[in-house]
Design a protein around this nucleic acid. Structure first.
Length: 420
RNA sequence: GGGGGAAUGUCCCGAGCGGCAAAGGGGGCGGACUGUAAAUCCGCUGGCUAUGCCUUCGCAGGUUCGAGUCCUGCUUCCCCCA
């Protein structure tokens, strides 16, 4: 794309300035539609888990900015395509989910979007269709005749996602192979129903999106557009959204607000500026000031990043509470009752609980074996005292004046054990 | 249809003369150093009611005191010939 392109629309200006764009099929075309206030764009989200995680956040933010700059965002639930499975970037065939699982996941995921987008019937209000609405009604023969004839297998075989699987001699089932056909058809269908002109997604979706544009042209839709975001990794190359404990979920019932705040607080120095632009609404000049902070001062920027990002998802009140909990815990070394808490029966505690089992109960370590190993390397602490005897028992005598026992795994993970 | 290979620790890759909880990486976790960062260094990386017990090398049998290792059948994948 032309390096000299200067966007006239607010939408592309923001996206370019904040680093959301990897590729676009036609900058001028998208710019004109956005400028005219006629831009409806969609991003597909699958329903393989009960919550989206941080990896989807860039996509969600792109929809948010679209709405803020006068466009209409369409998060599309992949209730239909999830029944098939997307081969893009996956090494192995996905496990098939039951329809009930998909429905449950969908309901759970929907909650998150309402935090980022305004839904309703207005011009720029978001809508959330589910591609099961049209995909499940498809008749195989009709689909082959009307849609399937437009696809070239030769071209599909040359797509990266497919080629990779073939080169590695990995299984690629027929239904997965059809995924791109369905996704392409989604685009056309969303144009018919809602006048959707642009599909966005991660850079790994480029091939699928372009296939949809192609199908649109062959099926008589006007010019459609593609825009992808860069694949996000941390500065040291790790994929975003995974931590020791697993994925960084967006639903609060799957990841406590405090842990979500901590995830952002632990951002690498080199990522702070980039993340502030992508994951907060802070104005650019404020971000430039923050990312210019050097040495230990950059920690201030990380706290702001954590609080802003958390506030957007969980609300400012909860974000500030997490921030305050962290401040007391890390900067004052004080015990805070607002740390994530796990209950234990009072009777059990009176009888005495082995330290190893206590850490397993708290969910800090997966097994007593792991707890044992961590004791050896000095990674476990009770009320801030390193555990040196793996046979020690926790009893009521270990309760602090707050009536809890603080279990720590490593320097950062803390859980309170509260008798009930 | 015929011939030849392959499958290993539930994250991945990968070694493994009949004595194996199984080499070595990567990744991950903990510790030290720091700033709740990165880099570096060190340790750990089947489970449990634990000087012991249980479960692991595609699946099912067999030989053996003892099988990841040898034999038979099966499954899946790859290569060559038709």
């Amino acid at each position: 794309m032309s390096a000299s392109f200067v966007p006239k629309s607010d939408f592309l200006s923001v996206l370019m300035e904040r680093g959301y764009i990897h590729q676009c099929s036609d900058f001028e075309g998208v710019d004109a539609k956005a400028k005219a206030g006629e831009l409806t764009a969609y991003i597909g989200f699958d329903c393989t888990a009960p919550s989206l995680h941080v990896g989807s956040l860039v996509q969600i933010m792109m929809l948010r900015w679209l709405q803020k700059t006068g466009g209409k965002p369409v998060p599309l639930m992949g209730g239909g395509t999830t029944r098939v499975g997307d081969p893009s970037g996956k090494d192995e065939s996905r496990r098939m989910l039951s329809l009930d699982d998909i429905e449950a996941n969908k309901t759970s995921i929907k909650q998150v979007f309402s935090k980022f987008l305004n839904f309703g019937d207005g011009k720029t209000d978001a809508i959330m269709p589910d591609n099961a609405e049209w995909l499940t009604a498809l008749n195989y023969i009709d689909f082959l005749r009307d849609v399937g004839r437009h696809f070239s297998v030769n071209r599909m075989l040359s797509m990266d996602s497919v080629k990779m699987r073939l080169e590695r001699d990995q299984e690629l089932s027929f239904i997965e192979f059809n995924y791109m056909c369905l996704q392409a058809y989604d685009f056309v269908e969303l144009h018919r129903r809602y006048g959707c002109l642009l599909q966005m997604g991660g850079s790994d979706q480029w091939g699928n999106i372009v296939t949809g544009i192609d199908l649109g042209r062959r099926m008589g839709a006007p010019q459609l557009y593609a825009l992808t975001s860069p694949l996000l990794t941390t500065a040291s190359g790790a994929k975003m959204g995974k931590t020791a404990a697993g994925a960084v979920w967006l639903n609060a019932d799957m990841l406590p607000v405090y842990d979500y705040w901590q995830y952002w607080r632990n951002t690498e120095d080199a990522d702070v500026g980039r993340f502030l632009k992508l994951f907060t609404d802070l104005p650019m000049d404020e971000i430039r000031r923050l990312e210019a902070l050097a040495g230990a001062e950059i920690n201030e920027a990380k706290k702001i990043l954590a609080t802003e990002a958390t506030a957007m998802l969980h609300g400012r009140e909860q974000a500030l509470a997490a921030s305050e909990t962290a401040r007391k815990t890390f900067e004052e070394g004080a015990l805070t009752t607002s740390l994530p808490t796990v209950e234990i029966s009072a009777g059990e505690l009176t009888a005495g609980v082995g330290v190893l089992n206590a850490f397993v109960k708290a969910g800090l370590v997966p097994s007593t074996g792991e707890a044992r190993r961590q004791v050896k390397s000095g990674g476990l602490r009770i009320n801030d005292a390193v555990v040196s005897d793996e046979r020690a028992q926790l009893t009521n005598a270990d309760l602090t004046s707050e009536g809890v026992i603080k279990l720590s795994f490593g320097k950062k993970k803390h859980i309170l054990l509260a008798p009930r």
